[in-house]
């Protein structure tokens, strides 16, 4: 027996976890359970990111997705968690239809994934893991360390831009979104009694 490839082993572990809990999200009827499963699925995805060598993105996944997004979701659950809304049943026809469509989607996507020979794996990959936090951080500030010109190390390859502008846009976007969300979700002023009478 060949020795176990631990990378593949952990991939299988995390992949199965992610898939299983993603299915769990679909199947679960309680919103809170859905949230729990989603967390596990997302955390497993973070594990997949680590396996793919994207440690910074993985950490971000945990920090923002799992930490931030889901706390927000749970927040919403708490605010709307009153008896009848926790679970709402859907008709069997809907389920059937959705499954068919999803099946078609999978049938489309999975062959596509295997259609490129290079993507099928099987060859041992380079072993050294490089930290990605610094290149990503510098890249967000406008310099792509990984795209340096071999001839002139002080400059980028022609046409290789970086992500300073998207970064700024996303920052502004986040700010606007937070303000907008706060505005949307604010407590509505109750109508005064006099208005109700009239």
């Amino acid at each position: 027996m060949d020795s176990i490839n631990w990378h593949s082993f952990f991939f299988l572990l995390f992949g199965l976890l992610a898939s299983a809990f993603a299915v769990g999200v679909v199947v679960a009827s309680s919103v809170v359970r859905m949230a729990l499963y989603l967390i596990v699925a997302l955390a497993a995805t973070a594990g997949l990111f680590f396996l793919a060598g994207a440690d910074f993105v993985g950490a971000m996944q945990i920090m923002i997705y799992v930490g931030g997004t889901l706390v927000l979701l749970v927040f919403g659950v708490m605010l709307t968690a009153q008896g009848p809304f926790v679970s709402m049943k859907t008709g069997g026809g809907d389920w059937l239809l959705a499954s068919l469509v999803a099946g078609a989607l999978l049938a489309l996507l999975i062959p596509v994934a295997f259609s490129v020979p290079d993507w099928r794996g099987g060859e041992p990959a380079p072993a050294v893991m490089e930290p990605t936090a610094t290149p990503i951080g510098v890249g967000l500030l406008g310099v792509r360390v990984d795209k340096l010109d071999a001839d002139r190390p002080e400059s980028l390859k022609p046409g290789m831009s970086s992500y300073l502008l998207p970064f700024e846009i996303v920052s502004m976007h986040l700010l606007v979104v937070l303000v907008g969300a706060a505005y949307l979700a604010r407590t509505k002023r109750r109508r005064s009694p006099s208005q109700i009478e009239s």
């Binding site: 490089e130 290149p135 510098v138 500030l141 310099v143 360390v145 340096l148 190390p153 002080e154 400059s155």
Partner: peptide, 13 residues
């Protein structure tokens, strides 16, 4: 190595 390279690039650009 990455860090020093990146530093240089930041200065140069």
């Amino acid at each position: 190595k990455t860090a020093s390279v990146s530093h240089r690039v930041t200065k140069g650009s």
